[in-house]
Design a protein around this nucleic acid. Structure first.
Length: 600
RNA sequence: GGAUCGGUAGUUCAGUUGGUUAGAAUGCUGCCCUGUCACGGCAGAGGUCGCGAGUUCGAGUCUCGUCCGGUCCGCCA
């Protein structure tokens, strides 16, 4: 027996007990003939005290940080208690100890606030995971996992595993490809999600399915994106959108309650895609704060006329003019406004500039374009923007899409600066009524906004069946009937992050074929790639729909971090490399030959 | 595919206008220390300034290229 207790559990009440602990040496503090050792394991840190004899013994062995030792001794209450650790009231008066394993000096300190840089910690991830913050993150992930499993199990969902070696499909992200040795010149693909399999399970009658499952997408990475990531993947039969939303509101509420002790009261608010774009410039609004986007070029307002009467071409000639009113920022200095202007001019934002109006406390307005408008007109702007005295109104003008994206980013930046994005506040939102299709300029065709299995709203089905997907007038693709078809799709948004998304699926063969056709997938290709699904739809497919949550992202938000890597035991860097095992790497010539692969 | 920031001691960083022997903190090693818990004190070791060219009397510093890492845009149904 290596231990009778862990390093996190002994308290003053245990005084007098003879115990054995095993763990890693966190630090050694030596005072001549007495030595203190902080012994660490997964559960905590306990102080060991070594007398003169044992101090000599451990010195002889040159024991240091991260050595693994076993210590036997008596628990005793400390004279100097340490309130910073849970076991701070006691210490172990060691009677004997044993070195279980030596350790090299670690390349960085194994403490909460480590001195190690990112790449070093990635390379020695197994050491980084000894640190308490990382350990807590993995524990949080497990708690979320467990809460999800419990909730879904209680609701009669069945967890079913689906294959990882599947076939490549058109549409969507780039696939990871796996060569098949037994089938020369053929390849598997790793699943971007278990989408079609879960639909087939619905056809099989498993009317409530879930799976906590790895998905793979070979696209460029970000702090919140890994090539392999985990979804809580769910599907239900005999449901409408309302049923799905209700069921999974329950899931996220249950997770928040179990993991953070937060009870969300009432239904999760809903917002249409159109309103989200209009009010936030974004399909995943951060609703922790207001600062809504106002369109100064809206028809039917006096403001358009004001604009047109002036000679301010920056506004007049722009496709759109969008503004936000930043509370209490009228005091911004020239330096601060200049800095914002530079910020919007960065290539990633790409605006030509930024106009602003300071709505001063005394009711006067001072703008960066004073000479084009009368003070009254500026005040009218401010009122239209819903500004209070003391606000700073930031205005961007330019091309529709770029300006919308820019004002959205600017809003988030200002929200951040004003401290309105509290990481301990969790705001949930359903975004609904997404368009079914998006226009792909490059190929002049329609692509699925969600995926090709998403059903159109019932009232839009007719428009899809009756009209050809062909776009004749590229300039005015928005006039095409497909542009206004709405999808039975929904996203769950938390604090400005999409944490889940799903849809009611197509379950009729004809409509699914029409969908493939709309996306430019020919009959032959559809048969070859999705024949199994179309076949299944011939044998009594029930109406069904579902959702998938991004587990990594949920973890990072609940854990108050911007990076999902902190919540993945062995993550990859932004080039998709595992810096610890140094993958990917080359393979032996023999392996390639077996696979019939010749490298270019 | 593009933008941007970084790479100097084991580690985290500083390094002035291009100028003599490249510094600090921490870690490491040795000695001292009986109540520390970020222990303390003294001493010491530790550097291919990512790599390669170039400019220059002289490059950690300037230029070009390249590799590696971070963040972002495109991309991610």
């Amino acid at each position: 027996m290596f231990r009778t207790h862990t390093c996190g559990e002994l308290r003053a009440a245990d005084s007098g007990k003879e115990v054995t602990l095993s763990g890693w040496i966190q630090t050694i503090r030596k005072f001549g003939s007495i030595t203190f050792i902080d012994l660490r394991d997964r559960y905590g840190i306990t102080q060991l005290v070594l007398d003169e004899t044992l101090t000599e013994a451990i010195e002889k062995q040159n024991a240091g940080r991260e050595w693994v030792i076993q210590a036997k001794g008596m628990v005793r209450e400390r004279s100097n208690k340490n309130p910073n650790i849970l076991t701070g009231d006691i210490e172990i008066a060691v009677s004997e100890f044993k070195v279980l394993n030596k350790s090299a000096v670690p390349p960085f300190t194994i403490v909460d606030d480590t001195d190690g840089g990112d790449d070093l910690r990635m390379k020695y991830r197994y050491l980084d995971l000894r640190r308490s913050p990382l350990k807590k993150n993995l524990e949080l992930r497990f708690a979320i996992n467990r809460a999800a499993r419990n909730y879904l199990s209680d609701k009669n969902f069945i967890e079913v595993e689906t294959p990882y070696l599947i076939s490549s499909t058109p549409e969507g992200a780039r696939d990871f490809i796996v060569p098949s040795r037994l089938n020369a010149h053929e390849f598997y693909a790793l699943p971007q999600s278990p989408q079609t399999f879960k639909q087939l399970l619905m056809v099989s009658g498993f009317d409530r399915y879930f799976q906590i499952v790895k998905c793979f997408r070979d696209e460029d990475l970000r702090a919140d994106r890994q090539p392999e990531f985990t979804q809580i993947d769910c599907e239900m039969s005999f449901v409408e959108q309302e049923d799905v939303l209700n069921t999974f509101e329950g899931l996220i509420k249950s997770i928040l309650k179990e993991v953070k002790g937060i009870e969300i009261q009432g239904a999760i608010p809903r917002m249409s895609f159109a309103d989200a774009m209009k009010d936030y410039g974004n399909d995943k609004p951060d609703t922790r704060f207001g600062m809504l986007v106002k369109n100064l070029k809206t028809q039917h307002t006096v403001h358009l006329q004001t604009l047109n009467e002036s000679t301010f071409d920056v506004f007049n000639k722009a496709e759109t003019v969008l503004a936000i009113s930043v509370p209490g920022a009228a005091e911004y200095s020239r330096k601060q406004t200049d800095e914002l202007i530079e910020w919007v001019k960065r290539p990633q934002i790409g605006m030509g500039g930024l106009a602003f109006i300071k709505y001063n406390q005394d009711g006067s307005c001072k703008s960066s374009f004073d000479k084009f408008f009368t003070p009254d007109q500026l005040t009218t702007f401010a009122e239209f923007c819903g500004s209070e005295k003391g606000d700073l109104i930031l205005i961007l003008a330019g091309k529709e899409e770029r300006t919308r994206k820019a004002i959205s980013e600017l809003r988030l930046l200002m929200g951040e600066r004003l401290g309105l994005r509290d990481p301990e506040k969790f705001n949930l939102l359903w975004v609904t009524d997404f368009p079914l299709f998006e226009y792909d300029e490059e190929d002049n065709r329609w692509v699925a906004r969600h995926h090709p299995f998403t059903s159109p709203k019932p009232e839009d089905v007719q428009a899809m069946i009756e009209n050809s997907p062909v776009i004749t007038d590229k300039e005015n693709y928005l006039q095409h009937p497909y542009a206004s078809i709405k999808a039975n799709a929904y996203d769950m948004v938390m604090n400005g992050n999409e944490i889940g998304g799903g849809s009611i699926r197509i379950y009729q063969k004809d409509l699914q074929q029409k969908m493939f056709a709309a996306l430019g997938i020919g009959e032959e290709e559809a048969q070859q790639k999705f024949g199994f699904l179309l076949g299944a739809f011939e044998y009594g497919a029930p109406p069904h729909g579902g959702i998938a949550f991004g587990l990594d992202r949920v973890c990072s938000i609940l854990g108050g971090s911007d990076s999902i890597r902190d919540f993945i035991a062995f993550p990859k860097n932004n080039n998709g490399r595992d810096m610890m095992i140094d993958a990917p790497g080359p393979v032996a010539e023999k392996q390639l030959k077996e696979l019939n692969i010749k490298l270019a």
